[in-house]
C-alpha cells in the first residue's frame, strides 16, 4: 500500500473511533466490570453484586442462564447463583455479550446489512467456538463463546457507521469473495481491525481484543492461538453449515497450522457440526436478545 494511502486508512480508522456520537455505547456497568476484572483484587462476589445492581442486565443474564441452551433442571433466580453454577468468567462474558448485542440492534448506514442474519451467524459461531474448545482446546472454553459471538463485530461497526462500506458489501457479492477481501480492496482495511479497535476502546480483555483481530488470520499471531484457533475453525464450520457471515460470498478457508495444532479429524468435524446444530436449536434466547 502506498504511504499516502496507508495514512488515509489510519485517518479513517481514527475518525471512526473518535466519532463517539456514531459509535454504540456500552452501559457503565460493563465498563466497570472490565476495569474490575483487570484488577487482581477483584473477586467473583464483587462482580456478582455489581451486575445484580443493574436490573436490566441481570434480567438478560438470567434469561440466558435459564434458556434451553444450558438446560439447568431448576430455575436460576439470582446472578450470584448463576456465578456458582457457570463460573465467574462465563457470567462476566455473558454480561458483556448481552450488552454488545443490545448496542448493535439498530439498522445502520448500509441498507443491505441484515442485523438479524448477522446475529444468527454470530450466535452459531459462539456455540461452535465453545464446542471446538470443549472438544479440542478445553483450557480456553470460558473465552470461546464470547470470542465466537463477537468475532465479526467490526462488520456491524462498518455497516452501522461507515457509508463507504456499502462498496465492500457490493464488491463481495459481485466478486463472490469474502467480506474481508472486498473490504481491504475498497475501504483499505477489514472489519477485524475495526472490531479490535472498538474492543480496545471499550476496554475489553486482551484475549478478546486479539481474538477479534486475528480470528480471520490466526497465522499472523503467536499469542492466544488456542482461543483464536477455536473461533477461526468455528467460523468455517458454521459457514459450511449455512450460517453465512454477513457480506461473505465465499467460504472462509481454514488455516493448515490451526488444523494441525487442534489435531482436527473428520470424526471431530462431524461431532462439532452436530454439537453446533444441537446447541443452536436450543439458543432461541440468544437470538431473541438481538431481536427484543
Amino acid at each position: 500500500m502506498a504511504k499516502q494511502e496507508a495514512e488515509d486508512v489510519e485517518q479513517t480508522l481514527e475518525d471512526l473511533m473518535s466519532n463517539a456520537g456514531d459509535l454504540p455505547t456500552l452501559p457503565t456497568v460493563i465498563i466497570k466490570i472490565n476495569k474490575m476484572t483487570a484488577s487482581p483484587q477483584t473477586n467473583a462476589a464483587d462482580v456478582g453484586r455489581l451486575i445484580s445492581n443493574d436490573p436490566s442486565l441481570s434480567a438478560k443474564i438470567l434469561k440466558l442462564v435459564n434458556s434451553a441452551y444450558y438446560g439447568f433442571p431448576r430455575k436460576v433466580t439470582s446472578v450470584t447463583k448463576a456465578i456458582v453454577l457457570l463460573g465467574f468468567n462465563k457470567v462476566k462474558n455473558m454480561a458483556l455479550s448481552a450488552s454488545v448485542v443490545d448496542a448493535f440492534k439498530h439498522t445502520g448506514k448500509v441498507s443491505s446489512f441484515d442485523f438479524a442474519k448477522f446475529w444468527e451467524h454470530s450466535v452459531a459461531a459462539g456455540i461452535a467456538s465453545e464446542a471446538v474448545a470443549k472438544s479440542l482446546a478445553p483450557q480456553c472454553v470460558d473465552d470461546a463463546f464470547v470470542g465466537g459471538l463477537l468475532h465479526d463485530i467490526g462488520k456491524a461497526v462498518v455497516a452501522g457507521c461507515m457509508e463507504k462500506s456499502q462498496l465492500a458489501f457490493d464488491l463481495a457479492e459481485k466478486k463472490k469473495c469474502t467480506f474481508e477481501v472486498a473490504a481491504v480492496e475498497t475501504i483499505g482495511f477489514d472489519h477485524a481491525k475495526v472490531g479490535a479497535l472498538l474492543a480496545e476502546h471499550w476496554n475489553f480483555p486482551e484475549t478478546l481484543v486479539r481474538t477479534i483481530r486475528y480470528a480471520p488470520y490466526p497465522d499472523r499471531t503467536r499469542q492466544h492461538r488456542d482461543v483464536i484457533g477455536c473461533v477461526h475453525l468455528a467460523n468455517v464450520i458454521v459457514s459450511a453449515l449455512g450460517f453465512r457471515g454477513a457480506g461473505d460470498f465465499a467460504m472462509p478457508v481454514v488455516s493448515n497450522s490451526i488444523w494441525e495444532e487442534l489435531k482436527v479429524t473428520p470424526e471431530s468435524i462431524a461431532a462439532l457440526c452436530e454439537e453446533t446444530l444441537k446447541g443452536y436449536a436450543n439458543a432461541a434466547a440468544f437470538i431473541e436478545l438481538a431481536k427484543d
Partner: peptide, 13 residues
C-alpha cells in the same frame, strides 16, 4: 482440510 469439512458437513446435514 476444507474438503474434509465439506464432506463431513454434507454427511451431518
Amino acid at each position: 482440510p476444507m474438503q474434509v469439512i465439506r464432506v463431513m458437513t454434507q454427511k451431518v446435514l
